[in-house]
Structures are given as structure tokens and as C-alpha cells.
Amino acid sequence: MSGSATATGQSVVRMANDIARNFAALGEEQAIRQTAEHIALFWDPRMKAAGFALLARADSGFSPEAGAALAQLAGEARDSAQG
């Protein structure tokens, strides 16, 4: 379980891991890409933000694929914000 203290944080860890597990059969690269797409399409901004905030924590609880997907989205969000 995640080290997040917020209800949203705990939920997004479980949700991201569930999504990634269900794409795992496609192989790591595809699983990360599809997990990121799914989160982008269905998560409210504060949920994404909660996920991004947890990425830096060693005890975030994200699976490697879920963490990679969120990291990819966080990068895209940074790029988008920078212009």
C-alpha cells in the first residue's frame, strides 16, 4: 500500500496499479503506454496531480509500470506547461 496520507492518494495508487496489471499481458512498453493513455482519458486533474506528487516517494506503492506511466504523463504535463 502507498505511503500517501490522503484518500485520493491511496485510491490513485490502487487504481493505477490495477490499470497497469490489466494491460500487463501486452508487454511492458505497451502496458505503460496504455496505462498512461487510460489515466489521461479518465482521471480528474487532482487525481493526476496526486499521482505525480507520489512519484517522488520511495514508498509510493506504484508498480513499476504504473509509476512509469504516471512519470510519462508528468513529463508531458511539464512540457505542456512550459509551452
Binding site: A7, T8, S11, D44
Partner: peptide
Amino acid sequence: PEPGLRIPNMLDAAIDGS
């Protein structure tokens, strides 16, 4: 343009205060 919260996520966000 961003998706909103689903019911369980609304409840989470309520507990968190947002």
C-alpha cells in the same frame, strides 16, 4: 476540457477537502 471526478473519487476528494 479535463475529465471530472467519478463518485468514489468525489468521496475521496471530499475527505481530502477539495
